[in-house]
Amino acid sequence: MTSIQVISSIISGGIVGFVLGLLGGGGSILAVPLLLYAVGIQDPHIVIGTTAFSVAVNAYTNLIPHARAGHVHWKSALYFTIPGAISAYFGSALGKMVPGKQLLFFFAILMIVMAVKMALPKKKTNQVIESRDQSNLLRIIIVAILVGLLSGFFGIGGGFLIVPGLMFAMKMPMITAIGTSLFSVGTFGLTTAVNYSISGLVNWWIVLEFVGGGILGGMLGAYIAASLSKRRKTLNYIFSGVVMTVAIYMLIINAKALHF
């Protein structure tokens, strides 16, 4: 690896950590394009395996303060994480089999979905579920399996799906859903990373540089977030715009490669 690559992967990690600290989520979606186009890793599968591991480290680190504040519902966390992790394993096995360019094409679509979701106004949190046929447990397992599958396939944590998933399935308040989701995000990411690393698809040096940069960026992001909290909406729009732009770029170049 060249020294330029080392520096750029530290900076990329810093950007991801910064966004995570600033917005409280969504940073990992940028990790894939950054590793691909800024650091210049050629193999999309290595990119996904490497981000999955970084995502796991990030999530577990963030889990600690949440657990200390009592914001993790451990019982629900286990109910959600165990079926989800099994499903993430299958998802990642599937992801490994899909050719790289196609995987990136789908990934770009996922990014667009996320960008749109971020730009949309947040809905009120109190949902009412009028059904007695599904027990809570069944509901949580179904949601966990779906989220785990997606998370494993793309090598993402899936926090943006898990938080509403927990709020829907376990009717949790937002703050506990965030705290509890970090356990699942970490475990799903780790499952995917382990599965990829078995095939040698994790670049450990980049993990180290990326995570190191991420910690620095995260602290900076959290620091700035405190003083910018009123402009959170604007920040969301900016981030959403960036993700959207990158996604469209990825869509175009990978579609070309697929001869669409």
């Binding site: 303060p65 200390r68 504040a69 519902h73 009412v128």
Partner: peptide, 25 residues
Amino acid sequence: DGTQLIDEIEAPNSMKASLDTVETW
């Protein structure tokens, strides 16, 4: 509209006394 059943609510965490935690809360 109906609301959640009591059995569906996970009991709150009982935390060790800590001033820092209260400040986070």
